[in-house]
């Protein structure tokens, strides 16, 4: 079985980010970059599927600047077999990313595309579903459990009301939610060892026509400063006063 895992380089989700003063972008000076947390979960799951059944080949791909190599190397260290960097300085929207990935899927013909449900920088939650549409693949978003069957996957996915179990014939696309697994820790020697694994650089194959574009970034309106109350009685009194109870 061949699994393709698209990963995105994002600013560390625990760092404090601000808009640039002219609103043209986000100030990331001095901040760390990571594999998007949901994508790391997707890589981990692919590796676990291999650990369970052996015959799994894992290819990771990232579309972006040359620096994405850092995240692809880490993915190789977690256990991916091969990395592809589609190197570009171009601005993309979700549909553009989906089309570039669709072209790679056509070439690589994986049985499963396994990816993050959402990038923690743009919080879009779009690319997986758009890619599945382009490929005509069945999809399971927000996966919390994946089981491999003969010619299909059985996926438990989270819903607004609880969860559901879907069976998807291969080839199919699955997006990972937080509870799918907890990614393993990779120590530095593992990352260094992964340097001998193949990483292929290439240029995009699909021209981009932006359909949406972020044009301004600002801080959210601040909440009015709160106050501490000294007792339960005081709290209940102010809440009653404001009609909350």
């Amino acid at each position: 079985m061949k699994i393709l895992v698209p990963i995105k380089r994002v600013v560390d989700p625990y760092s404090k980010v601000r808009p640039l003063s002219d609103g043209s972008g986000i100030d990331t000076t001095g901040l760390k970059f990571e594999i998007n947390p949901f994508d790391e979960i997707a890589i981990e799951e692919a590796v676990r599927l291999r650990e369970k059944s052996g015959d799994v080949e894992i290819i990771v791909v990232s579309i972006g600047k040359s620096e994405c190599e850092e995240q692809l190397r880490k993915a190789l260290a977690i256990g991916a077999d091969k990395a592809i960097l589609i190197e570009t300085d171009q601005e993309y929207d979700s549909l553009g990313i989906a089309k570039e990935l669709a072209s790679l899927v056509a070439e690589q013909a994986p049985d499963v595309v396994l990816m993050g449900k959402q990038a923690t920088d743009d919080d879009c939650n779009q690319v997986g579903q758009m890619l599945a549409a382009k490929l005509g693949y069945p999809q399971a978003t927000f996966a919390s459990k994946i089981e491999r069957l003969q010619t299909s996957l059985k996926v438990t996915r989270e819903t607004d009301e609880g969860d559901e179990i879907l069976e998807l014939p291969l080839p199919c696309l699955v997006t990972a939610d937080l509870r799918l697994n907890e990614p393993r820790y990779v120590a530095l020697p593992g990352i260094i060892k992964a340097r001998s694994k193949p990483l292929e650089r290439r240029t995009p194959s699909v021209p981009v026509t932006l359909k949406t574009r972020p044009v301004f970034f600002e801080s959210p309106p601040p909440r009015a400063a709160g106050k501490k109350v000294s007792s339960v009685d005081e709290l209940v009194a102010v809440l009653r006063d404001r009609g909350a109870f």
């Binding site: 601000r18 986000i26 743009d122 359909k211 949406t212 574009r213 044009v215």
Partner: peptide, 18 residues
């Protein structure tokens, strides 16, 4: 909102449908 609501972005739509 983007980045867990730390930043608000204004998005322009450049084509229809959206």
């Amino acid at each position: 909102p983007v980045l867990a609501g730390s930043i608000i972005s204004i998005v322009e739509v450049l084509s229809t449908p959206v």
